Amino acid sequence: MTKAQAHLPDPDNPEPTGDVAGDGTRGTLDRIRVARPELRGALSACATYVADNPWQVRGQSIKEVATGAGVSTNAVHRFTRAIGYDGFRSFVQALSLDLGRVIGSAYGLPSSLVSPSVAAIGSENASVSAQSVIARVFELEIEALADTMRNIPRSIERVVDALVGANEILFVGTGAAMALCELSAYRLMTLGIHSSAASDPGAILPRIFLMKPGDVVFAVSYHGNTRHVNEALEDGRSRGLTTVCLTAVSGSVAGSLADHELMVIGPRTAIAFGQFASRVASATMLDALAAAVAWRLEATALPHANALQTALRSRTSETRRHGTRQPREA
């Protein structure tokens, strides 16, 4: 047995740590992640193409996948067998199920939080309790952050360049992502950068029409499949704006529409822990970007932030001395 074969997933004897499907088998995306470092040549090209474009691949024929990866159809077939499937059809079916779990985990309570067998991991004699479940949440959050940090792309420098050079930044999101958008807009405003956040399609487009080339539309989307968020990216690009997408699913629709795609958490964490971990990792990534912008704009951002803090303290002190101001009589 070669080194590569020794590290490839075995569908008949799955490793316990790879059970992202919850049924004792590795998920497709996780199989690719584990096998990828050991694959070479055409098989490596296939792994890269699928990992970068999973949403497109699930609807493609074997010939289209081969064309996208720049390999032969035979190489695609060998790739699917190398990661434990008996052919292309079973591979595509499993990939579709994987992506379905990613979307589903955005709306439900992850079983990894409440499953006694999972909550007790880490101690042979651990008793299942609320404390063990809470501890497991922290473990998974830390894993998500570590996963994100390991995969910070070099292209993040260009994202920071875009944020620094923009006159206006619009953060777009929905649901839980909107709270992160509002926080990020506030952070950048304290640095002297015109920023705002919107989730209503009726408000997003008018704001985009007021923006100029060089400004930034920054989408935050867990699975990258929200219609009006994707439309905001399309509208931004059509008007010459720089578009950025922060997502947990590589190759998502939103990611393909953005000039720059930033990933938080890997596929295994995305399926096992879903949007719970994504929120923490996304908030950390957005805070890190704000810190990088502050570092780049130190000469102007820090004095602005200090002046703002001074004004806020003064306002607070004045309120304490005089109490709440009464409205003027008409």
Rank of each mutant, 00 (worst) to 15 (best):
A4P: 04
D10H: 05
P11Y: 01
T17Q: 12
G22F: 05
G24I: 06
L29R: 05
D30L: 02
G41R: 14
L43A: 09
T48N: 12
N53K: 13
K63V: 10
G68H: 04
A69L: 06
V71N: 03
H77K: 10
F88E: 09
L99D: 00
L99A: 00
S105T: 15
P116T: 06
V118N: 07
E124W: 07
E124V: 10
E124A: 13
S127E: 14
F138G: 10
E139F: 05
I142T: 15
D147P: 05
M149W: 05
M149S: 07
M149E: 09
P153Q: 14
S155P: 03
V159D: 02
A162W: 00
N167Q: 14
L170M: 10
L170N: 01
F171P: 00
A177P: 02
E182I: 08
S184V: 10
A185G: 15
T190D: 12
H194R: 14
A197Y: 04
L205T: 11
R207I: 13
F209L: 15
K212V: 05
P213I: 00
G214R: 02
D215H: 01
A219E: 04
S221H: 06
Y222C: 07
N225H: 11
T226W: 00
R227H: 14
H228F: 12
H228A: 06
N230W: 00
L233N: 01
C245D: 03
V249N: 02
S250G: 07
S256E: 13
L257N: 03
V264T: 10
F273D: 03
A277S: 15
R279D: 13
V280N: 01
A281M: 12
A283H: 14
T284I: 11
L289C: 06
R296L: 08
R296P: 01
E298K: 12
L302T: 08
L302V: 11
H304F: 13
H304R: 12
S314H: 07
T319Y: 14
G323V: 10
P327F: 06
R328M: 10
